[in-house]
C-alpha cells in the first residue's frame, strides 16, 4: 500500500498551488478555481488520514463530503457575484475593481 506521507505531500503541493494561484491571478474565476484546489487538498488530507486512522475511519470521509457540498454552495454564490459584476461593467480583472481604497 502507498504510505500515508505520499498523500500528504501531494496535498501540500496542491494546497500551495492553490494559494499561489489565489494570490497571483487577477481574474476572479481563476481565483475561485485556485480556492477549489485548496479545498481539494483538504479533502485529500481528510480521506488519507481517515484511511490510515485506527480510531474512526468514517469521520474523515463524512467531513470530506461536507466540504464538497458546502464548497458547491460557495461556488454557486461566487459565480453569481462575478456574473453580476461582469454583466453590468464587463470587467474581468479584479485590479480594475478599485473604487474603494484608503
Amino acid at each position: 500500500m502507498i504510505p500515508l506521507h505520499y498523500y500528504l505531500i501531494v496535498a501540500v503541493i496542491l494546497f500551495s498551488i492553490g494559494i499561489w494561484g489565489a494570490l497571483k491571478h487577477t481574474n476572479p474565476i481563476r481565483v475561485l478555481i485556485s480556492i477549489e484546489l485548496m479545498l481539494n487538498a483538504v479533502n485529500l488530507n481528510l480521506i488519507a488520514f481517515a484511511r490510515f486512522s485506527q480510531v474512526d475511519m468514517v469521520l474523515g470521509q463524512v467531513f470530506a463530503i461536507f466540504v464538497i457540498a458546502v464548497a458547491a454552495a460557495e461556488v454557486a454564490i461566487g459565480l453569481a457575484i462575478v456574473l453580476m459584476i461582469v454583466r453590468e461593467r464587463n470587467i474581468y480583472d479584479i485590479n480594475k475593481i478599485n473604487l474603494l481604497k484608503g
Binding site: 494546497f15 492553490g18 494559494i19 489565489a22 476572479p28 481565483v31 475561485l32 480556492i35 485548496m38 479545498l39 487538498a41 483538504v42 488530507n45 466540504v67 460557495e74 454564490i77 461566487g78 457575484i81 462575478v82 453580476m84 459584476i85 453590468e88 461593467r89 479584479i94 475593481i97 478599485n98 473604487l99 474603494l100
Partner: peptide
C-alpha cells in the same frame, strides 16, 4: 456594493480553505 462583496467573498473563501486545512 459589488466591489465590497467580491472582495469579501474571495477573502472569505480563502480563509475558509485555510481554516479547513
Amino acid at each position: 456594493s459589488q466591489e465590497a462583496v467580491l472582495k469579501y467573498f474571495l477573502n472569505g473563501a480563502l480563509a475558509s480553505a485555510i481554516i479547513l486545512f
